[in-house]
């Protein structure tokens, strides 16, 4: 523990705004597309995210730990990749996995920076990507979570944040 006081992360609308900014910016700058966000959903306990490709990063702070997930359907990634790779390049599953891995890095890198500018002093682990048609990602802890839904041309994808021992502003 450092001598400096760490501020605890809250699953609140401020963090939701950080997530929305990071996601919309990453999509706009990398793919020149606009995504829209729905209001965040808050909950506690086990929740399952359904998607085809999930980028997952662990988060640690002195007082808590957590999980950050970007969960996308393959169809949404398949719409995005030709913008960078060209329309004639066949989009493979490996390319989609690569793209979600990099988006995970970019999105949660920005969120980490925002949080640390507010003295949260968080660290992120190495991201991993889990794939499988319609796979579920379940968090087997009883902590609180927040899901921010996004839409890209009618296709839904989600960003999920779960924290252990983090109070939520009600």
């Amino acid at each position: 523990m450092t001598g400096m006081q760490q501020k605890q992360i809250l699953l609140d609308d401020v963090l939701a705004k950080d997530i929305m900014t990071a996601v919309t910016r990453s999509m706009r700058e990398t793919f020149s597309v606009t995504v829209t966000a729905d209001p965040p959903e808050y909950g506690e306990g086990i929740v399952a995210l359904a998607g085809d490709i999930s980028g997952i990063i662990g988060l640690v702070q002195a007082q808590l730990d957590g999980t950050l997930i970007l969960c996308m359907p393959f169809e949404a990634v398949k719409d995005l990749l030709p913008i960078v790779l060209g329309k004639t390049t066949p989009i493979t599953h490996e390319m989609a996995v690569d793209a979600v891995g990099e988006l995970t890095n970019m999105i949660f890198g920005q969120i980490k920076n925002e949080l640390n500018q507010r003295d949260h002093q968080i660290k992120l682990g190495i991201p991993c990507v889990v794939t499988g048609k319609g796979h579920f990602v379940c968090q087997f802890h009883r902590g609180k979570y927040m899901i921010v839904p996004f839409h890209l041309d009618g296709k839904l994808f989600q960003v999920y944040v779960a924290l252990h021992n983090s109070p939520r502003l009600d």
């Binding site: 990398t30 990749l81 960078v84 390319m95 690569d98 793209a99 891995g101 990099e102």
Partner: peptide
Amino acid sequence: DHFLIRQFVRN
């Protein structure tokens, strides 16, 4: 290490 970024920068 990401193909996406290599292609993005190349473009």
